[in-house]
Every structure is written in structure tokens, then in C-alpha cells.
Computed example of a mutant assay.
Amino acid sequence: MKIIDLSITLETGMKVFPGDPEVKIEVAHTYEKNGWELRNLNLGSHTGTHVDAFSHMHQGMDSLDEISVESFFGEAQVVECSKEWPKNIELFFTEEVDLNYLPQFLEANPKFVGGEITEELERALLKRGIITYTNLVNLDKIPKHSSFTFYGLPLKIKKGDGSPVRAIAIVQS
């Protein structure tokens, strides 16, 4: 078994989507002064590797606290646009996928997808109840068209539209 970290490290000053809050991570308590260490996090809900709730782009749809935890992990594959996609399995892409592929997504019927997805496709997928993951790294380390187990659990934020995640792939050797 091999575990592959698919997450970007969060740090002060990291790149964010234009207009999103800047990331500031500051030490609030120190061992010397308080006997423990604690950081103050200031960041947007769509910072770094993150998951998007349906409510992110569609008012009235489910937020993170309303989506079952089982929706954030499952059997997955990294697939190519030019090949046939498996059905009822979660899909990840290392190449950009746009709205033209929406019929293929609907036919494949995944509960979540991730990788290089355009904003227009993300909006369409969320509207149809398909969760999206953004800013994943190391997908190229996973053999294409081979199944692996994906975990990308968000914080349970009340009315949360999205959350940073620690995303991992568990690949059987």
C-alpha cells in the first residue's frame, strides 16, 4: 500500500484565487510564554486544496454540514479525457476538462470529481449534485485508469460553501 499526499501546504502569502482573502498564519501562543503553541489562521474557505459544497455556486443547495461524510471519500481513478470513463466511480483529471465534457460526467455518474476543471464545468457539476475538489497536487503519481481510494474530508463548517482538505490517495502496490 502506498499513500500519496494530494494537498498543497497552507502558508502565509500563498497564491489564492483573485479577490479571495489572503492567507495569514500567525503564532498566537508560544511554548516560552504560554507553555504550548497555537496558530491563528486567517484564510478563505476555498484556500489551497479544497472541496466545494453545492452551495458554493447555487443558493439554497446543501452546504458542507448538510452533506454526508460518506460523500467525501471513495474508490476513484485518474482518467484521460480521450478514453472511456468508468461509471459510478470518482474521477480525477490531470488535463483541463471543460463544459463540453458535461454529458460524459453525467453518464459516468460520480459522486465527486477533481483536478483541472474549468469554473463553468464546476458550476454545472455542483448544480447536478457532484462535489468538486480543486488544487490537487501529485495526481501524476497515481497510475492512470487504476483504482485507488481517495479521502478528502472537509471541516464541518455550518453553512460552509467549501473547506480546505488534507486529500490523500491510497494506492495498492
Rank of each mutant, 00 (worst) to 15 (best):
M1H: 10
K2A: 13
I4L: 10
L6R: 05
I8H: 09
I8D: 00
E11C: 12
T12R: 03
T12L: 08
G13V: 07
M14A: 03
V16Y: 02
V16A: 08
V16C: 09
V16I: 08
V16W: 06
F17V: 14
P18A: 12
G19C: 08
D20N: 15
V23F: 08
K24A: 12
I25P: 00
E26S: 15
V27E: 15
A28C: 04
A28K: 07
H29W: 09
T30P: 03
T30M: 07
E32S: 12
G35S: 05
W36E: 03
R39K: 11
N40R: 14
L41S: 02
L43Y: 05
S45W: 14
H46G: 09
H46R: 13
T47K: 04
T49Y: 06
H50T: 03
V51C: 13
D52C: 15
A53T: 02
S55K: 09
H56Q: 14
M61A: 04
D62Y: 11
S63P: 03
S68Q: 12
V69A: 09
E70V: 01
E70K: 10
E70S: 11
F72C: 06
F72N: 02
F73M: 13
E75V: 07
E75G: 08
A76T: 06
Q77T: 00
C81V: 06
S82F: 07
I89M: 13
I89K: 15
E90T: 12
L91K: 01
F92W: 04
T94C: 13
T94W: 10
E96L: 15
V97F: 11
D98S: 12
L99F: 10
L99I: 15
Q104H: 06
F105T: 01
E107T: 08
N109W: 02
P110Y: 09
K111R: 12
K111P: 00
F112P: 04
F112N: 01
G114C: 10
I117G: 03
T118A: 05
T118V: 06
E119F: 09
E119L: 14
E122P: 01
E122K: 14
R123G: 01
R123W: 13
R123Q: 06
L126K: 06
K127E: 15
K127A: 14
I131H: 05
T132P: 09
T134G: 13
N135P: 04
N135F: 15
L136Q: 01
V137M: 11
N138Y: 03
D140H: 08
D140M: 03
K141C: 11
S146R: 14
F148S: 09
T149V: 11
T149N: 01
T149S: 07
F150N: 00
G152T: 02
G152A: 09
L153W: 05
L153G: 01
L153H: 07
P154V: 05
P154F: 02
L155C: 01
K156M: 04
G160V: 08
D161K: 15
G162V: 13
S163P: 00
P164G: 12
A169C: 08
I170N: 00
Q172G: 06
